[in-house]
Amino acid sequence: MKIEEALAHCDIPCKIYDPIVIQIAALTVVRIIDIIEEKKLDSSKSEDCAELARLTLEKENQARIVKDETRIIWGDYFKDPQIEAFPDVHSLVHSIMLQSSKCKQSLSRENAEKLVSLVNEFSEIFWKTKEVETSRVTAPYPPALEMVVPNLS
């Protein structure tokens, strides 16, 4: 009797997903807001204006990275098994989208800290889907906020 093989297929084109990119971008948003606050830039001076424009542009860019990279992990990595295990991921991702936009629109540190908090939640869910334990540690660089890291051996 000929017995055929049934493929328990597990392959994707890339497979490399890691929310650390999102976390660093969210922390950078906070850091840029802090730098703008610390520098006490004078908008009547052209040099200060140029620096403020540059910092603001980079804040926009980092908030956009948070949105883009979150959408990629949510859209490409999360499939039925992950979504069934973590059904709240949709509303969490939507909250990250809205909070990133708030950070683009303002210089509120509170908004940026909230974004970091939401991204940490997303990172924890991501690693749980891979059955990897995580820890909450203080980032070893400014703004030294709490971040989620995988416990890799």
């Binding site: 328990a8 297929h9 597990c10 392959d11 994707i12 084109p13 497979k15 990595y77 499939k79 039925d80 098994p81 992950q82 069934e84 295990a85 889907t129 891979k130 059955e131």
Partner: peptide, 14 residues
């Protein structure tokens, strides 16, 4: 639609 049991894996089939 189908899914894998092993959450560590992924497949375009799913």
């Amino acid at each position: 639609k189908v899914k894998s049991d092993n959450l560590k894996t992924d497949s375009p089939v799913c």
